[in-house]
């Protein structure tokens, strides 16, 4: 069973350490508007802006390149820092679309980036609500792989919400991404996406 919970809803009548919850007066409450999956005993937020955590994979755009550092735009007016590494095979250029990983968080909110790689293309860059990116990826990336195969595209989805799409069936891929974004909370989505893409292919 899945159910939607609101901030302040009681999750457990005892103190429990669980994501997106807090404990008060010996009980545990949800912090977020989320969906609770009873079988997996897991609370997943339904909405929310992205907040950098160490290890997050992101997609961004190189916004500026200075002598020792570069900045990478990760969301609206928000940047990650990259320490330029002369030994690296890739030297960033302004305007490049890149994938990268958050290595650390400085001053509590500034992400420092690592393992920066350019995404070839140039790809089409779209924005997906960050809370929906995990559903777009699917378990072990199963959802995104399915779309790539059926549309002959390459998709790189960053947890910050930017998604780079390149290849032949860009329009179909984007249509399926938008469907996932609006139906992320529903059952049987993987099958519905497959059916949609197959019928789109047959039509064209």
């Amino acid at each position: 069973m899945k159910k939607i919970v609101l901030p302040g809803d009681e999750m457990y009548d005892k103190p429990v350490r669980a994501n997106h919850t807090y404990v008060e007066g010996g009980r545990t409450f949800s912090k977020v508007l989320g969906i609770y999956n009873e079988e997996k005993d897991e609370l997943v937020p339904l909405e929310g802006a992205w907040h950098p955590r160490v290890g997050n994979s992101i997609v961004g755009i190189v916004a500026s390149v200075d002598r020792s550092t570069s900045s990478i735009e990760l969301r609206h007016s928000s940047y990650g820092i990259l320490i330029n590494d002369r030994m690296s095979r890739y030297s960033p250029r302004k305007g490049d679309i890149v994938e990268s990983v958050v290595k650390s968080i400085e001053r509590k909110s500034v992400p420092v980036m690592d393992r920066v790689r350019p995404i070839d293309g140039p790809p089409l860059l779209i924005y997906v609500k960050p809370a929906k990116v995990p559903r777009l990826l699917g378990r072990n990336d199963s959802m995104v792989k399915q779309i790539e195969e059926l549309t002959d595209t390459r998709i790189v989805a960053g947890l910050n919400g930017f998604v780079a799409v390149s290849g032949r069936g860009i329009n179909m891929a984007v249509a399926s991404i938008r469907k996932i974004e609006s139906e992320a909370h529903t059952y049987g989505l993987t099958d519905r996406i497959r059916e949609m893409l197959i019928s789109m292919k047959n039509d064209s």
Binding site: L6, P7, G8, H20, Y22, E24, F29, K31, V32, L33, P45, L46, E47, G48, A49, A131
Partner: peptide
């Protein structure tokens, strides 16, 4: 809540 802002 619809913005996903965590609240008590």
């Amino acid at each position: 809540a619809s913005a996903g802002i965590p609240m008590k």
